[in-house]
């Protein structure tokens, strides 16, 4: 455990990380609440900010890239990416499918009812 002393960050890196994190979070909040962006552009912006947040914390707090044995970290990262892909893409697929099938728009319900049940 003590071999890790050279990795631990400086006050500077923690402060920078903290300030950036707060700024990114506020940016996401303001962009959404004040409706500066809407629709897909908002989604894309939020995803972008989230990924940036992730990178900032990895670099400033966890000091990625400065460790003695990067192979373990690389493996952990690849695995994380895999799990993330599985859960995020899986959820999108599932939710899209369910929403599509379970929350038909009013027009569709009416069409269905008039076609199928002759109402």
């Amino acid at each position: 455990m003590s071999q890790s002393t050279h990795q631990s960050g400086s006050l500077v890196s923690y402060t920078v990380g903290f300030v950036l994190s707060v700024a990114i979070t506020l940016a996401a909040y303001v962009a959404t609440v004040n409706k500066i962006f809407t629709g897909w552009s908002l989604v894309i912006l939020l995803v972008f900010l989230a990924v940036t947040q992730l990178l900032v914390q990895l670099i400033c707090f966890l000091h990625i890239g400065r460790e003695a044995k990067p192979r373990w970290n690389l493996m952990a990262f690849l695995f994380m990416a895999l799990m993330f892909g599985v859960i995020a893409i899986g959820s999108l697929w599932i939710m899209h499918n369910m929403n599509y099938r379970m929350v038909p728009k009013g027009v569709e319900v009416n069409n269905y009812l008039s076609n199928q049940d002759g109402l």
């Binding site: 697929w93 599932i94 499918n97 369910m98 599509y100 099938r101 379970m102």
Partner: peptide, 8 residues
């Protein structure tokens, strides 16, 4: 049973 399609 929540309502996903047959493919899912």
């Amino acid at each position: 049973t929540m309502g996903a399609g047959a493919d899912v």
